[in-house]
């Protein structure tokens, strides 16, 4: 995997990422064991080169353990309605365990996700059960970006 310059997220991609979509986060241990967990409410700071994303604290033990030795991370964001999907990959540059100030942002993103999944017939109660209130914020620099929409173009660099 080679990419000469860091990826910069433009305005339209930022809007998509922050829409309140389905998010999955992957980390890997030093011995190559992958770990997948839900991500919530990703946010793109103004620099366009980093992304903040939240994971449930109760599910954070393995990802945080992975990140101690391997800071590489992947995040897929998918719209449950259109199935448009992207994947961002990079390196974690910050971990924040106290996210009290982020609660409103996280809640908004989750509510957006709840609305979109309800529109395609998912049980809102079951969807609500997917998340927990306490979260951890991960910040990562984006080094690679891919179109992940199902189809022949899946995997194409953005």
């Amino acid at each position: 995997m080679t990419q000469t310059t860091p990826f910069r997220i433009d305005e339209s991609l930022r809007e998509f990422i922050e829409l309140g979509l389905a998010v999955q986060i992957a980390t890997a241990s030093n011995n190559g064991s992958p770990h997948v967990t839900y991500g919530w409410s990703p946010r793109v700071p103004t620099d366009g080169r980093t992304v903040e994303v939240f994971i449930d604290k109760v599910r954070s033990a393995t990802p945080l353990a992975d990140l101690k030795t391997n800071k590489k991370i992947a995040m897929t964001v998918a719209d449950p309605i259109s199935y448009r999907s992207i994947q961002l990959k990079g390196t974690v540059v910050g971990i924040e365990l106290d996210c009290a100030d982020d609660q409103a942002w996280v809640r908004n993103g989750r509510e957006g996700f709840l609305v979109r999944t309800s529109l395609i017939g998912d049980d809102p109660v079951a969807i609500r059960n997917l998340w927990y209130d306490d979260v951890v914020r991960l910040t990562f620099s984006v080094e690679f970006a891919f179109d992940q929409t199902p189809g022949p173009e899946a995997g194409r660099p953005l």
Binding site: A22, K72, A74
Partner: peptide, 20 residues
């Protein structure tokens, strides 16, 4: 398959990949 699952794998350089 009512709700999609996600799968994570890792490449030779330790970079994870995740998709639905």
């Amino acid at each position: 398959g009512v709700v999609p699952a996600a799968i994570a794998t890792v490449d030779a350089e330790g970079m994870p990949n995740v998709t639905f």
